[in-house]
Amino acid sequence: MKRNTLVLGITLLLLAIFAWAGWANWEYRKQAAEKRLATASKAELIPDDSGNAPVYVSPLMNKPAPSFTLENLNGQRVSLASYRGKAVLLNFWATWCGPCKLETPWLVELRNQYASQGFEVLGISTEGDDLAANDKAGWTKDKGAIAAFVEQNHVPYPVLINGDSLSQPYGGLDEMPTSFFVDRNGNVVAAVLGLTSKADIESNIKKALGAGK
């Protein structure tokens, strides 16, 4: 009887040690995951449980849009801060991106439709993603391609270049088009990765204007 009790006691002790170690490990991983999520600057694509396309989750949602100053096609510097008080659609795009080309006419129409209510689009080209900073010929060629596209589509809104420099603060920008809808206070109220319908874009514009809630 004494021997049985001893064996049982040792077994329980070992199990308790294993359980404690497992629990401590789980807690550690949980805290590490929460910390990573809290500090993540990279957007995520979260699989939809129903099997639909992954949902784009931006860490910028309901947070101030990171400030920036970029050059437009004329070499003038344009900053996001100068649009404070307006609803702004930050549309990251590239000339090599078919879906971007498809949605641009919609953006032009919607921009013209809602401009009087205080809405603006900033088209931000990520054209030079694989260009070296000192590749003058490459940048000139890309600028030309962007300018041709702007002219062809009668784009009335500012088009800025070197959007790749905003990749980190804007969550990676791994795919184009990526759009951020910023309200009049400078907060991101919607973020969309990929081509969506014109109706969806308009709905998000209304949200940014404070009229679509």
């Binding site: 590239a94 078919g98 879906p99 694989d130 795919e175 184009m176 088009p177």
Partner: peptide
């Protein structure tokens, strides 16, 4: 690209 979005050129 996938059916809705494109990734940057890659080598």
């Amino acid at each position: 690209c996938d059916k809705n979005a494109c990734m940057p050129p890659k080598t």
